[in-house]
Amino acid sequence: MKIKMNKLFEESVKGCFCHFDNCGRLYLGRHQNDGLSFTIIDESGNSRVIHIDEQILCEDIMLFQQSLADRYVLIFFESHEYKVKVFSADGTEQCAFSLPSGVSCSLLDEKQNLWIGLSDEGIYSDENPEGHSVLCYSLDGRLKKTHIDQQLSEIYAPAADDCYALAEKDGLIYMLYYSYTVIAAFDETEVKRVWIISDKTYSGVYDQLAISNDGFWVCKDDHSLFLIPADISLPMQEVTCCDPDGYELSGHQLKLTGNAIYAVSNSGIYKRDISNGKIK
């Protein structure tokens, strides 16, 4: 299966931190002698720059994203652990807290909850006696109560031994997990639905997830893209990303959001819109 993507951004972003959110904003982070500089470009092309006084390498950043009230959330790896810092619009630090061991993925949702997925290292850690696979924090560092893993057990769904990716669509959080592909949809209070993918041909570790009417888009190793059809009894399809002329992109890194697929390559940034509703 091939998909054509529109060119969004001409400039090479090699060596930068690069992130997209569900609002279509592009975040480009660059390391500077006096700290970090983030350029934020919205869908209309307007841009602004946020300077943060942190000596962090771009490759150590997991997330940088705008929250409501013009605050900015930064997750980064330092001194053998992931840390979260929240900054004001002028780059002033407002809050900081550490995350437990075994962090595998993160998601800042539209309600301003910070969801953290854990690998098997974190799920079975002594500091996680209840065996949570996903944690929910407020932006002041408060850990919220969730019962996701308990509810998965109660409905006889596979246990989450490893959380691979988190995504948001229409107010629900989706978690991609386990050694063969399982996807659970939930909110802050309960699990809504679980999909157990029957196609074992493509079983393995996936690191990104997005949802559309077509099905579940999953990414492996940041550059291999697959579509799990909405009718999960159908086989998974491998997807080739192409430029507007139909030529296959190469050497690119994929970024999935709730509304689009982005491909970051040396020749620029490409986008494919997938914002066509939710899975029925």
Results as ranks from 00 to 15, higher is better:
141 G>F: 00
146 T>R: 13
207 D>P: 00
202 Y>R: 05
149 D>I: 04
172 L>H: 12
158 P>F: 09
168 E>P: 00
155 I>A: 02
114 L>P: 00
131 G>N: 12
152 L>G: 09
120 D>S: 15
200 K>M: 08
196 I>N: 14
197 I>H: 05
114 L>K: 01
191 V>R: 11
143 L>I: 07
168 E>R: 12
166 L>D: 04
175 M>I: 04
173 I>Q: 12
119 S>G: 11
193 R>L: 10
191 V>Y: 08
126 D>R: 10
154 E>H: 12
118 L>K: 11
176 L>A: 06
137 Y>D: 03
118 L>E: 01
164 Y>G: 02
164 Y>Q: 07
189 T>H: 11
195 W>E: 07
165 A>N: 05
158 P>I: 04
196 I>Q: 15
155 I>P: 14
205 V>Y: 05
182 V>F: 02
132 H>A: 09
188 E>M: 13
169 K>T: 14
177 Y>M: 14
120 D>E: 14
121 E>P: 00
199 D>C: 07
132 H>Q: 15
113 N>M: 06
194 V>N: 08
123 I>R: 01
161 D>H: 07
110 E>F: 04
146 T>W: 01
166 L>P: 02
128 N>Q: 01
145 K>E: 13
138 S>A: 07
114 L>N: 04
200 K>S: 15
128 N>I: 01
140 D>T: 09
162 D>R: 11
162 D>G: 01
121 E>N: 07
129 P>H: 11
116 I>A: 08
128 N>H: 01
198 S>Q: 13
183 I>D: 08
173 I>N: 14
207 D>T: 04
190 E>C: 12
112 Q>T: 11
